[in-house]
């Protein structure tokens, strides 16, 4: 899932300066399950900002709503009729949700209420960790299902650096396990550590962000076009 975190109230107050009526829109998908932008979080944030702005003497009316998926226009287009009455929209979706709203409603000021952090998952209750950087060319097959790109600070591809301590911890942060230490342990347990001896060609980073904005086109899923004259 995409993991996000709410922006500090102070930042949101600054963004809403001068606005009278704002619609806070949550998202019922990734950011709802990481407790950043679901229905409850929209309620808590809206309530806090309403009180903060009233105490400042410049009250902002904040209405609340949520859509199931802010990143798909089919789920947000029903909002179009109602946005005219608002000075701005505070999106509690991820960066994709904010941009989908902005693309769909170009005449409305769309403001981000969250900081989108990473693709990851919960590792224990209340804790989320990064697991994927979307490099576009998955190599988990060679690393025992542990990603050195998202879990190693240096994104090393050929084993650990010299900064791993005896307990298998990273020098960057003693709370972070060394990804390559974990890879070795996992592959050793699976008895496939010899795979690490195979020479891998240099990674093609053109599938990652180095290749610019990425796009997937699935012709089998696109709307069929009727040939004229047929």
């Amino acid at each position: 899932m995409i993991v996000a975190d709410q922006k500090p109230i102070e930042d949101i107050r600054k963004m809403l300066k001068g606005k009278k009526k704002v619609l806070a829109i949550g998202c019922g998908t990734c950011v709802a399950v990481c407790f950043a932008g679901g229905k409850r979080e929209v309620g808590v944030l809206s309530s806090a900002v309403r009180m903060a702005t009233e105490l400042e003497g410049e009250p902002v009316q904040i209405d609340e709503t949520i859509v199931q998926r802010q990143c798909e226009k089919e789920f947000i287009e029903h909002l179009g009729d109602q946005l005219g009455e608002y000075d701005a929209v505070l999106s509690l979706g991820c960066g994709v949700g904010v941009q989908t709203l902005a693309d769909q409603f170009p005449g409305t000021r769309i403001l981000p209420g969250l900081n989108t952090k990473f693709m990851g998952g919960p590792t224990e209750q209340g804790v989320w960790e990064e697991r994927c950087q979307g490099c576009g060319n998955c190599l988990l097959e060679y690393t025992g299902g542990i990603c050195p790109i998202s879990r190693c600070a240096k994104q090393l591809m050929n084993g650990p650096c010299g900064g791993t301590d005896e307990g298998g911890r990273c020098e960057v942060d003693p709370d972070t396990p060394c990804a390559w230490f974990n890879i070795w342990e996992r592959m050793d347990a699976l008895d496939i550590q010899d795979q690490l001896m195979e020479i891998q060609p240099p990674k093609d980073w053109s599938t990652s962000r180095d290749g610019g904005r990425r796009k997937i086109v699935r012709k089998d899923l696109q709307k069929p076009k009727l040939d004229e004259g047929s």
Binding site: L23, E64, T65
Partner: peptide, 20 residues
């Protein structure tokens, strides 16, 4: 607190279904 009691904010209805 200095907050005035005011009408509750509006919750826009969903087109269909309910999300909790």
């Amino acid at each position: 607190t200095g907050l005035k009691k005011k009408p509750a904010s509006r919750e826009l209805p969903l087109p269909s279904g309910k999300i909790e």
